[in-house]
Amino acid sequence: MANDIILRTRGLTREFKGFVAVEDVDLEIHRGTIHALIGPNGAGKTTCFNLLTKFLVPTRGQIIYKDRDITAAPPAAVARMGLVRSFQISAVFPNLTALENVRVALQRERGESFDFWRSKSVLDKWNDRALALLEDVGLTEFAYTPAVNLAYGRKRALEIATTLALDPEMLLLDEPMAGMGHEDIDRVAALIKKVSAKRTILMVEHNLSVVSDLSDRITVLTRGRVLAEGDYAAVSSDPRVQQAYMGSGH
């Protein structure tokens, strides 16, 4: 099962008016692993991420998720198939409490209901599950705090709890450590590790120490192409990778 491929791309290409941002990228993400996508600035990581999350349409190539071609599927449909993305800017509902934030996701189980005549106390049946999710990310004591009052790292944790409420099979994380201090990085890194137990994670990340700690497999992009792939030791000792990073001023 470990070698089972959950998400793969074939010849994924995206051009912007004469500029090729992503060219012929073949990715294979194995089920149950944490896979990192790294590369110097302008390497096409973000474009690649947006292609996978369906926020951009590829010029050429195919995206196959669980043996189904999702190249043409709309983002919402992909989300319902269990492939859920996070946002780089923390995406919480600021004036709802942490508990309510998570419950909005859990509430989706009711389908798209428009029952405006019912009291919201019918949502209380999700409180236990919401609290359990908050506990998983270490936010138990902040359950009744409005999200806007949480520190940045905790907002990220809350976002992860909300995403997990949808019970996704695969998570796409867009620079989960962006803008964080050391302490928050450790917290969120531990969280990602924990969350990955039953799931597959693909993340774009700048912080190389985080990448080395977390990832089972790393793909290095430069100039829109795959430069190298392998575990951290193999990738970091690859002279071409060192060249690419040195060359771009890192």
Partner: peptide, 8 residues
């Protein structure tokens, strides 16, 4: 209501 919660 649950509906109002989604509105918010």
């Amino acid at each position: 209501s649950p509906f109002g919660q989604v509105l918010k």
